[in-house]
Simulated scan of single mutants.
Amino acid sequence: MSPKQQRGEATADLLLTTALRVYAEAGQQGFTVNAVTAASGVSLGSLYHHFGSFDGLAAALYTRCMEELLEEIVSAVKRSRTARTGIRALVLAYLRFTEEHRDAALFLHASAYSGYLAAHAEEIRAAKAAKLSGLGEWLRSRIGAGEIVPMPPALIEVLVMGPVAEAARRWLASTYDDIDLTEAARILPDSIWRSLRPA
């Protein structure tokens, strides 16, 4: 990689890192192109060069946060020996990521339906599919072995991710005092497993 390419990657990384910090500190209202360029010291022209637009930067940040979460989840699942321990590992990895990477988790959960994602939906979908391919293989092998009830992968995702994502979202919102991640980690894995195990 040439020095120019290295500088370009460093600038893009600085913009993404700064954008996440700005979002965490200022919220959605304060998440603006001016705030990010001021905090990063990177010019507006450079931001547009690397990401095309502020929406492009936000979508790239969403993709980065999503990939980090999915990498942790898939890695945890692949180390598991049984379907049950794999589901437990997935739930615990998601909750652990939420707690340890609060800013990234906050951006993911608050951004999921933001308008700037629509224009980049295909890129985001492709990045998600690439990261989830390992999980899909693992699920198919467990279904084939009779360890998980046969159903479409999308429904398995809803059954597994839905409760965990909602628990994380409510904890991150901090307007709810009824969600404790430690309690969620104790209760959710077995509750979710019961919906997936064969009768």
Rank of each mutant, 00 (worst) to 15 (best):
L139S: 05
A60K: 09
A184M: 13
L139E: 10
E71D: 14
K4Q: 10
I179R: 01
C65G: 02
S133Q: 14
D190L: 00
A89G: 06
L196W: 05
Y48R: 15
Y62M: 02
L159F: 06
F31L: 04
I192P: 10
V74G: 05
L90Q: 15
E123F: 06
L117C: 01
T17W: 02
L95E: 03
G41Q: 08
P198T: 15
R142H: 13
S114A: 10
L132H: 03
V42R: 06
L155V: 10
T18N: 09
L15S: 12
R102M: 08
A126G: 04
Y113F: 06
L132E: 11
L16R: 15
T85G: 02
T82C: 06
R88D: 11
T17C: 02
P150Y: 10
Q28S: 14
K4C: 01
A76I: 09
F97T: 03
R79T: 14
S114R: 12
G134C: 08
G162W: 07
A145S: 13
G27M: 08
V36A: 04
G8E: 13
I179L: 03
H101D: 11
R186F: 09
A38L: 02
V42S: 07
A119L: 04
R21F: 04
L139K: 10
Y62L: 01
A93S: 09
V22L: 07
T182N: 14
S2V: 00
Y23D: 07
S133I: 05
H109Y: 14
W171L: 00
P152R: 13
E99T: 14
T82W: 14
L106F: 07
E25P: 09
E147L: 08
T37Y: 08
Q28N: 09
R194G: 02
S174Y: 07
G41A: 00
T11C: 09
M161I: 01
E183I: 04
T175I: 14
W138M: 02
R96D: 15
F107C: 00
L108T: 11
P198L: 06
L139R: 09
T82L: 08
D103V: 06
V91N: 05
A19W: 12
L44C: 00
K131G: 07
V22I: 10
G86K: 03
D178V: 10
E67V: 15
Q29L: 04
M66I: 01
A118M: 09
E166K: 06
A112R: 15
V149C: 03
L61S: 09
V77L: 05
L57S: 12
A12C: 00
A26R: 15
L47A: 09
A130T: 11
A89L: 07
R7F: 11
P153D: 02
R88P: 02
T32C: 04
P3S: 12
W171I: 03
A89E: 05
A118T: 12
A145W: 03
A89W: 06
R7Q: 14
